[in-house]
Design a protein around this nucleic acid. Structure first.
Length: 809
RNA sequence: GCCGGUGUGGUGGAAUGGUAGACACAGGAGACUUAAAAUCUCCAGAUAGCAAUAUCGUACCGGUUCAAGCCCGGUCACCGGCACCA
């Protein structure tokens, strides 16, 4: 019989749908649970990409193996369907985004099913479903009620093309993450989430989870913790200027101060008429404000600034009057928006001081002449000088001393700062969750009563974003106008919607109990399934989705909704699939591989096997059409081999050892995400079977090990060979084969023989041979004998069953 | 600049400090075939040699070790992240 993959795949996909062997059972205490999670897709009009197939296939392989290992497995799928591309498509084609979403989901679902993933389809979710976003809105209300959501006017990142604000995380190289258009600053009133309150816990709890190291580092860097001190400098205007510094030890070298152009005191002093060069200052402020983020970073080569004429700062450690500048190299959003400048020991300050002729005083000795270059060493290499009571100490020693001194004098205190900023949570777009808040002139912002949830998105005629930066919903006056939940008077609804990251910040919880109307998930389901045991996804989500969802989860933990501090016990990440030449796949390059084409030509099992075989799962890999053929060839060989399997339900003697070794290798490799070598081991086993012949028992083991990778073909062969009839179950419902360690070793082993570390030959010896026996055998090898001719063996080194190294003189 | 990561045949890639190149792809030779495709068998790092074999080989320089692709120090290149964060 021929291997007709198309019919076979359809047949088994239908049986899986009908018989539901992959259903997860909440509360099953007879088995350990395993929750394997992959990032749900944004259902774009382009359909599923091979980039999706890699992580999905990988976790499917893991999930299938875990079921065979006896776990109660939750492996779900859904759609993260709110977002701009759908909305833009809707605008362009005059179709309701909900309709676009629905069509795209149908397409995605078909593609996912076509690849034979073992999802529990009864738990499918969709973030745009009111039954789902009801709970997204509910979480927002809890955040609000707990003081973690607030509305404030602030300069925000504004995408000039999307006409929408962006979170800091969504700005890439000064442009919009999605469309690349320039991002400018715009003063707008926005809903914010206080993620900064969780900064320290988001760092600390990384120690408790099994995340790959680069994810941890990247999150830590993003949160950007730095320790130092806040120090108060008096000014001649009478105001106390607080600065943050990581180097309080260099305080005696602070020869000027710099404020950000937006600093409140600049405005204040200007209004008080204290600044003699007010026009210059104003001009500088205006110029800084007009710069986009992109320009501000591009222009960072040359420092600019204006010295305030009329106000001076006073260095609290020596009482010296020092000049105050404004410059845009000081950011209003970090620290206190003001710095003390120590040009002798900071590159930026040094550069600025040189340009503006400020005094440079060395306070840490050990570098070159500080008039020539800043000396920035922060360790024991520098010794304090010109610093009164700090003199003679190393930098490391001086920091705690000066910090304590500042605290005693009441002019400063130890302080920790983070680069992380609060999460800008509103978007002026249509296709998102409405923010369930009502504004009343009398009562201010009021949360919508929870029994009013979900607050449905109203129907609008046009989804076009407005030029004034308001959401399209703002034009629906009969939706906007409502009554105040507090006083009952006339009030208006919030018209901004939530960012795309909202729905994905808690979706894994919904899988645990996808149809619950009275809670985001039942306590029973949450207790049983939490946490996610293994979450695999892209590195690009490390500082966005992954951080946001950890934040929400910690909050839900704090209010007693979820049972664990951290949502994900383990996080891994896959490499990108590149086009044929190793370039990124893109429409413009014309190198995009459509999974449908591969499935049509070679079958889903080949697609799955190839995408797992393509290379190291964690690294980027280039697509190769020829290598796909190789995997098809492999499956064909398995088919031909298994079709004619006969006799012997035990392992055949000739293959037994190889089978045990392969079970061990494949089992370990799947757990370690080394899918490529797992498949290589299966290929090698098939090569052995081809050479040695094989019996039914041999085939049985092969099929079980291959089943996570090529499930359709395996089910068909399982049935053809009568295993299904014998067990009454499909291959995917069988127990994973076990290996016997003692049978993974051979009676005789080949050992390498080295002379002075150089390979001179090999010998076959009984397993676990002693040194003397190995050496004797080694000496019988002609090349070895030649290599030691005329010399004496002074030492031998034996690595059991591996090699012997003869040291000669 | 800072933080991660990577560098191995013609190609994708294997190698708990222990026989470098598993497993594939592409290539070559052969078998089957009227022929092609498919399939099967064999060869295959480089250099020299008819060959046995020898020498050299994991980006580069050095070190540790009986033994280094792997560990240590330095250099270069590429990829990813962050970036005037005081």
């Amino acid at each position: 019989m021929k291997y007709e993959f198309t019919n076979i795949e359809k047949k088994w996909q239908k049986r899986w749908m009908d018989e539901k062997p992959f259903a997860a059972v909440t509360g099953d205490t007879t088995k350990p649970k395993f929750f394997g999670l992959v990032e749900f897709p944004y259902p774009s009009g382009n359909g599923l990409h091979v980039g999706h197939a890699r992580p999905y296939t990988a976790m499917d392989v893991v999930a299938r193996k875990k079921r065979m290992d006896g776990y109660n497995v939750l492996f779900p799928m859904g759609y993260d369907a709110f977002g701009l591309p759908t909305e833009n498509y809707a605008i362009k084609n005059h179709i309701h985004p909900a309709k676009v979403t629905e069509d795209n989901i149908v397409n995605f679902r078909n593609q996912l099913q076509m690849l034979g993933y073992s999802f529990d389809w009864d738990r499918e979710i969709n973030t745009t479903d009111p039954g789902y976003y009801k709970w997204t809105q509910w979480i927002f209300l809890q955040l609000y009620k707990n003081g973690l959501a607030y509305k404030t006017s602030m300069p925000v990142n504004w995408c000039t093309s999307c006409k929408c604000v962006l979170a800091n995380e969504e700005v890439v190289d000064g442009g919009c993450e999605r469309c690349g258009s320039p991002v400018i600053r715009k003063e707008k009133s926005q809903w914010m989430l206080r993620i900064t309150k969780y900064a320290q816990r988001l760092i600390n709890d990384l120690d408790e989870v099994d995340f790959i190291e680069r994810v941890k580092t990247q999150q830590k860097n993003w949160i950007g913790r730095s320790t130092g001190a806040e120090v108060t400098f008096k000014s001649t205007a009478g105001d106390d200027i607080v600065v943050f510094t990581t180097r309080p030890d260099t305080l005696f070298g602070a020869t000027y101060m710099v404020l950000s152009p937006e600093h409140e005191f600049v405005k204040k002093w200007m209004e008080a008429g204290l600044l003699k060069n007010a026009d210059d200052v104003k001009a500088y402020q205006a110029a800084a404000a007009a710069k986009s983020d992109l320009e501000r970073t591009e222009l960072n080569k040359e420092k600019t600034g204006v010295c305030l004429d009329g106000v001076k700062g006073i260095n609290p450690v020596n009482g010296k009057e020092i000049p105050i500048f404004i410059s845009d190299y000081v950011l209003s959003t970090y620290g206190t928006g003001a710095i003390m400048a120590v040009p002798a020991h900071d590159e930026r300050d040094w550069e600025f001081a040189k340009k503006f002729g400020c005094e440079i005083i060395e306070v840490v000795a050990g570098g070159e002449n500080v008039q020539e270059a800043a000396f920035t060493a922060k360790d024991d290499t520098g010794i304090m000088v010109n610093s009164e009571h700090l003199n003679g100490l190393t930098v490391k020693e001086a920091i705690p001393v000066i910090t304590k001194w500042l605290e005693e004098k009441g002019i400063g205190e130890a302080k920790v700062n983070y680069k992380l900023r609060d999460w800008v949570f509103s978007r002026q777009r249509y296709w998102g969750e409405p923010i369930p808040m009502i504004h009343c002139e009398k009562c201010g912002w009021q949360p919508l009563s929870e029994d009013q949830l979900p607050l449905l998105l109203p129907e609008v005629d046009s989804y076009e974003p407005t030029d004034d930066g308001e959401s399209p919903i703002s034009k629906i006056t009969d939706w906007v106008n409502t009554t105040c939940p507090c006083c009952g008077g006339a009030a208006k609804r919030e018209t901004d919607t939530m960012p795309q990251w909202a729905g994905s910040s808690w979706y894994f919880l919904r899988y645990m109990d996808a149809h619950n109307d009275s809670a985001l998930a039942s306590k029973e389901a949450l207790d049983y399934w939490s946490p996610v045991d293994w979450y695999n996804g892209g590195m690009e989500h490390t500082t966005l989705h992954l951080l946001y969802s950890r934040f929400w989860h910690k909050f839900l933990y704090d209010i007693g909704v979820v049972p664990t501090k951290e949502p994900y016990a383990k996080r891994t990440s896959h490499g990108m699939i590149l086009g044929e030449g190793g370039e990124k796949m893109s429409k413009s390059r014309g190198n995009v591989i459509n999974p449908n084409d591969i499935v049509d030509e070679f079958g889903a099992d080949t697609m799955r096997t190839y995408i797992m075989f393509i290379g190291d799962f964690e690294k980027a890999a280039a697509w190769s059409p020829n290598a796909v053929k190789g995997c098809k060839r492999f499956l064909d060989r398995v088919w031909n081999l298994c079709e004619k399997a006969e006799g012997g339900d035990e392992y055949s003697a000739v293959n037994e050892s190889a089978i045990h070794k392969t079970i061990k290798k494949v089992s370990e490799d799947i757990e370690a995400m080394k899918f490529n070598t797992a498949i290589a081991a299966l290929m090698a086993l098939v090569n052995d079977f081809t050479a040695n012949g094989c019996c039914r028992g041999d085939i049985r083991a092969l099929l079980l090990m291959l089943s996570p990778f090529a499930p359709h073909m395996v089910e068909e062969l399982w049935e053809m060979n009568g295993f299904a009839a014998e067990t009454g179950k499909m291959a995917c419902q069988q127990a994973w084969p076990v290996y016997d360690e003692s049978k993974t070793v051979d009676a005789t082993v080949e050992m390498a023989v080295q002379v002075l570390g150089k390979l001179r030959g090999t010998v076959m010896v009984p397993f676990d041979s002693e040194e003397a026996a190995v050496v004797e055998a080694a000496l019988a090898v002609e090349k070895v004998a030649k290599a030691i001719e005329g010399k004496q063996i002074v030492k031998t080194i034996l690595v059991k069953n591996k090699l012997v190294n003869l040291i000669v003189k």
